[in-house]
Design a protein around this nucleic acid. Structure first.
Lengths: 127, 127
DNA sequence: CTCCTCACTTACTTTTTGGTAAGTACCCCA
DNA sequence: TGGGGTACTTACCAAAAAGTAAGTGAGGAG
């Protein structure tokens, strides 16, 4: 039990409340994956996020669902099928993250840091 | 030695590179404190961020300095005096965080979450 | 003389986070 | 019959982040 919690309770400001929802090794990527593909199945996301474990992925997806960022649709089919997509809040969060992504890319340029091979080769632009 | 590192190396995208620099329980607040006051001394920041320990604060400040977000000026005076201020990168990061702060405040409103007493009562608006 | 302030550092402990590996239950393909 | 795929869960472990408490060394207030 005990949701692998980080529901710290009272926040001190908006940034706090927003960062809390994005922090987690893969959450940003999940957000971006769903943003650029609209709807994805569990295994598709897993393959897109090279290196994520099933445990971490489910954990993150559950938290993001709880936080109202993504929607989870289960098909009562026989090989299980679950589809994830962004909610309105998820879409707007993604938009709010765009300037931060710009800043990050600028930082990479500035410091001459390496960027790993794109997580999703099919995605148009990486954030 | 060995900076309490979280320099994970190769990033996968800009958001990654930006989040890495802001994640840490107090970094967002430090950024905001310096943004709204221009220049602050160690003890002033400490008092503004109610609840931070000296260890965590120095640790965060050092990392942020390493990441080029803040500038640290030491006066060779007899009761020590150190002043912190934002660098250009720090200022632009703060700007990039504004939409995220908006989103966070919207989230707080949406979910009816509590907000702790402002960290800096003198600050005009909380992010 | 004693305590408080400044800006830290160090050692140690706890909490949180992430990773590994296995198990589940059923299906399709060869 | 054996292997792969679907979407997970569980138990256990390692690593990282954060908290606690104490020490430093000089100055100024009482």
């Amino acid at each position: 039990m005990t949701t692998p919690g980080r529901r710290t309770g009272p926040y001190i400001c908006g940034i706090d409340a927003a960062l809390d929802v994005v922090s987690g090794k893969w959450k940003g990527l999940v957000l971006w994956e769903l943003h650029s593909h609209g709807t994805r199945r569990f295994a598709e996301i897993r393959r897109a996020l090279h290196g994520v474990s099933e445990k971490m992925l489910t954990q993150h997806l559950r938290q993001m669902e709880e936080d109202g960022l993504i929607h989870r649709k289960v098909y009562a089919e026989v090989p299980p099928k679950v589809e994830y997509s962004l909610t309105e809040a998820g879409v707007s969060l993604n938009e709010a993250l765009l300037p931060l992504g710009d800043w990050g890319r600028e930082r990479l340029r500035r410091e001459g840091l390496t960027v790993k091979a794109a997580a999703t080769p099919t995605a148009s632009t990486t954030p």
